[in-house]
Amino acid sequence: MARVRRPGARWWVGAVGLVGLCLATGLEPAYSQQSVSVRATLVKGALPADDPTAAAWATAAVSEFPMSPQVHWPVRITEVTAKSVKVRGLHDGTTVAILVEYSDPSEDPDDAAALEFMVGETKAHFAHGQPMAQVQGGPVNIWYWKNKDGKGVDMGAKGFGTLKPHTHQDVKAKGVYQGGAWKVVFSRPFHTEHVDEDTQFKPGEFASIAFAIWDGKKTDTGQPKEKGSEKAISSWWYFRADAPPDYSPYMYALLAVALALGFEMVLVRRLKKGS
């Protein structure tokens, strides 16, 4: 005769034990969260496009990205000053401002920083948009600032040796050296007339961004420590300017709640009538 085993209290103990075991195996170590994107928030007052020290920057979300010595193509460099870069973004609906902050023990005329963007929908290699073997790559748009020039330069490249300033200059930049660190703010309108050469920003949509830093400190040879391709770089990360507030998801959610409540009421009423 088959023995029928009835579930009792021990059965529940086993169930709780298994649930605990599952949760325990599912626990993950707390990894340090590395930034993957720069977020430019909508500023209510004036955009601090020419003031890297403005109080408004304190309201912007900060992202930090590690920097590497440029070892991808000759001329390479093995040690760079900037180990990481902190980036903030703000916009006023028409112009975007991006603040780049990094440590540098000395202020030098040849200190420089740059932002790089893809142009249009075509993917571009992070190293100056160099050609790719199996993918048709696009150009890159580079915003460059050098301390001694005191201005932003709007540049373009599609491969090594093709970097040159655009005939039109839409980028502004200003750097301030304070307490062993550079704060450089770049700014440009969201849209320009030169869609084939300039990156165009669409609020709410992610774009690719990369960074480059040069420590212009003079060495014994009289040359800057970092120059040209000898620089600190990053590969592509993401950038997004916040879209204007959109409250429609809250409306949809409220509508869904109302519909679900109505469904429940009808269901319960019908069940009661049926019973």
Partner: peptide
């Protein structure tokens, strides 16, 4: 259960219509 069900439906609706902060 009767209170949680509509809230769950609302939460799912919000999650599927709100724009995400996560990169592509």
């Amino acid at each position: 259960v009767l209170a949680l069900f509509p809230l769950l439906v609302g939460w799912q609706t919000y999650g599927s219509t709100a724009s995400s902060d996560a990169p592509p």
